[in-house]
Amino acid sequence: MTGPGGSLHLRSLCKRYGSYPAVDSVDLQIERGEFLTLLGPSGSGKTTLLMMIAGFQDITSGDILLDGTSIANTPAEKRNFGMVFQGYALFPHMTVKDNIAYPLSVRKRPKAEIAARVAEMLDLVRLTPFAKRFPKELSGGQQQRVALARALCFAPPVLLLDEPLGALDKKLRIEVQAQLKDIHQRVGTTFVYVTHDQEEALSMSDRIVIMQNGRIEQVGTPSDLYQQPKTAFAASFLGKSNFLRRDGAVFALRPEKIDLAPAGAGQGANKVSGAVQSVTYFGAVLKYQVAVPGMDPIEVDVDAWRGGAALPEGARVDLTWSETAAVRLTDQTL
């Protein structure tokens, strides 16, 4: 549908405000057609990094290469990157159709080509009946799709998305995530997506970059990051983790990888005993907090349908897990 995606190479990219490093020597290779998510809490530098790729933030040092060519000194309007802004930034004085046609009409493309392309994009985001409406007459989800169509209309090699789902309610967000993923697969454009929402990151990305304090904490596929977090930050920001100290090292242990059994029934090398501190019912899972002497309380998720009735508070339990379940982190302390 559009041209092939571009590959991006960020080379020791830095952005300093005075002495404060907003982005601190970031090295990253973004593959052609990839859906890459920059994930991190606010202030982690993810948006600054995106704005540097877009050309709205200048670079203190380092380089950005698009398909091997430096674009560090190319102004934003010459980079040809599509961008979906937080809050969408649609042109309020133009109809949906004119918004989507804008990138082509500023490039002075023939009218017939523009009309055909706009129709194609309206169809892609399923907004054909709304072509003549103004942005303020649309719902948040529809506005978001207009912004997406507008940013994809000129077949950019790279699409940058800055928390595009932030303004939507949770149910709609899940629906739009699926649409976004579907559109990504159909157009083949490289997507660079910024979010602080870990579920969004896990469900859509080919790879996730976890950022903290302007640095890359860890890069990997969603399952890599979830199964093999390298740092305590990665382990706790993406999903939940219990942290155990053993042999001078710190291990991360996911709550759902722990087996919970009445005292005496637990088998295996990795076993601790404790007492149920609290139990909360979440429909699909029961979340136990287990107090273990000499450790922080351990959180355990048990499939609710499997375990029968919930164990009462104060019940003595054994916790066991397989050898591979606990992941050794690079952190020495917490």
Binding site: E77, K78, G82, A89, V106, A151, F154
Partner: peptide, 23 residues
């Protein structure tokens, strides 16, 4: 004016003059 609208215009490839006239 929301500053992002002007940024959006630039990111969509409009020159400074086009952004001024059309947005």
């Amino acid at each position: 004016i929301d500053g992002r609208v002007v940024q959006a215009s630039r990111s969509l490839g409009a020159t400074g003059a086009q952004t001024l006239w059309r947005v």
